[in-house]
Simulated scan of single mutants.
Amino acid sequence: MTDSELDIVYTRLCNAMTGVGEASASLFLARFALLAIDTIGDRDVSLRLIEEAREGMTG
């Protein structure tokens, strides 16, 4: 994916989160994550991505 394509996808994700509202944003992200994990279809890749996303998030 090019930087431009990534920007388009990220913008759509942000707009979707805005559309569902702040109260539902966490649920939306959880649903998106489950759909992405199913599409990836590889346990090890999915687990690695979870760890990469968590890096720097905990104090």
Rank of each mutant, 00 (worst) to 15 (best):
E22R: 02
E5A: 13
D3H: 11
D7M: 15
T2P: 02
G56W: 05
S26Y: 05
R54Y: 01
M17V: 09
L49Y: 09
V45K: 04
D42P: 02
R12H: 09
D38F: 03
A23P: 01
I37T: 10
R31D: 03
F28R: 02
A16V: 02
C14L: 14
I37Q: 08
A30K: 10
R31N: 04
A16N: 06
M57F: 10
V45F: 04
S46K: 02
M57H: 10
V9Y: 00
E22T: 08
S46F: 00
A30G: 06
G41W: 04
T18Y: 10
A23N: 08
D42M: 05
T11D: 12
G21V: 00
D44A: 15
G19M: 09
T58Y: 13
A36V: 12
G56E: 01
G56K: 01
M57G: 09
L27P: 01
G21N: 02
E55A: 15
T58Q: 15
I8V: 14
E51I: 00
A16C: 06
L35D: 08
D42Y: 08
D44R: 07
L47R: 04
Y10E: 13
L27T: 14
M1F: 12
S24Q: 12
Y10R: 13
I50D: 03
N15C: 07
S4G: 10
S46D: 02
D38T: 06
A30D: 08
A33E: 10
S46M: 05
L34P: 00
T58P: 02
L13H: 09
Y10L: 14
D44S: 13
T11N: 12
M17D: 03
L34Y: 06
T58D: 14
E52C: 08
M17W: 03
D38R: 10
Y10S: 13
D7A: 15
M1N: 13
V9E: 03
R31P: 00
D44H: 10
A30N: 09
A16S: 10
R12V: 07
R12L: 11
I8H: 12
F32I: 00
E5L: 11
R12I: 09
R12F: 09
T18A: 15
T39L: 15
A36Q: 10
M17N: 06
I37H: 02
G21Y: 01
V45H: 03
R31H: 04
L35V: 07
R54G: 01
S26F: 06
L49V: 09
E5T: 04
R48D: 09
F32K: 03
E55S: 15
E22A: 09
S46Y: 01
T2L: 10
S24W: 01
L35I: 07
A30F: 04
L47Y: 02
G41E: 12
A25N: 03
T58F: 12
A30T: 09
A33T: 07
G59P: 05
N15I: 02
E5W: 10
L49G: 05
G59Y: 07
S24T: 03
L49P: 04
G56F: 05
A53E: 03
T11A: 14
G59S: 14
R12T: 07
E52Y: 09
T39W: 13
G21D: 00
G41Y: 06
R48L: 11
A16E: 03
L6W: 10
T11Y: 08
N15Q: 11
S4Y: 08
L13D: 08
